[in-house]
Amino acid sequence: MPAEGRQLEKLRHLARHALESGAVSLVIGFAEGTVPGRAAPLFCTAPADADRLIFDGYCTLNLANYLTRPEVRAHQTVALVARHAVAKAVVGLVQESQVDPTRVRLIAIHCPDLDGLQQDVAWTVADGLQTLDEFLPTAAHLHDQELTPERFAAVAQVESKSSHDRWDHFAREFDKCIKCYACRNVCPLCYCERCIADKNQPQWIDTSSTQRGNFAWNIVRAFHLAGRCIDCGACERACPMDLPLMELNRKMKKVVAERFGYVAGYDPKADLPLVTFKKDDPEEFIK
């Protein structure tokens, strides 16, 4: 059996065993999609379901997204097939009291680099079901890759533009937005029951498909994720209109790293930099 096949067997075995032993009542992973080159989320509640699990470079959804759904919350303990970005999202959800870490287990998938989404990337499955605390040390080394210049190539390109050209660039890009909110719906950290964009009394965010509305939505989305976005890229991949959402997300990530020395997704106990109140905050931006 090829190496990949052995890893898949291991993945299915872990899932099956987790359900059989009663350690969890739900395993969320991926199954073959309806069209080639797509993977669909799979919710396994019976051990036999585990046989349908797959994992490959198409499994790009951030499954942590499902943890905040009422149907999933109803389960006492849930296991996630988790590549690194999924685990990072779980960290964020724990920080914001959305997920009880004692009720989540990870079937961790390790890829050699941070994203590990390329087709031919070699992946391995960690031994045994892990708690978040057990998992975190095994991925701590990836922190170093979070801020490498290559990750910010697109940001640097936008930054190098004049403000005039930058305006045009975003005006053009945002103009494509059709307000489908797919970006919001796939984002594991966009879990609000009632998004501010859906608030209409009063309606702060203009929902019209005009330039003003497009700017309002895209800027608010990015701002609400500042210091929280775990850089999984799910939103950009979900966008049917190919908006370069990661340009904004990564710019935020860069500023937060520079200003607060913080990268989201590594420490479930850390204070979120934009959600702290410090009396001795230098507040340099005001002076």
Binding site: Q98, L272, F277
Partner: peptide, 15 residues
């Protein structure tokens, strides 16, 4: 209460 998601942002920021 209908809207609050208990993200705890307010709890953490209240001075």
């Amino acid at each position: 209460e209908r809207v609050c998601d208990y993200c705890t942002a307010c709890i953490k920021t209240c001075p």
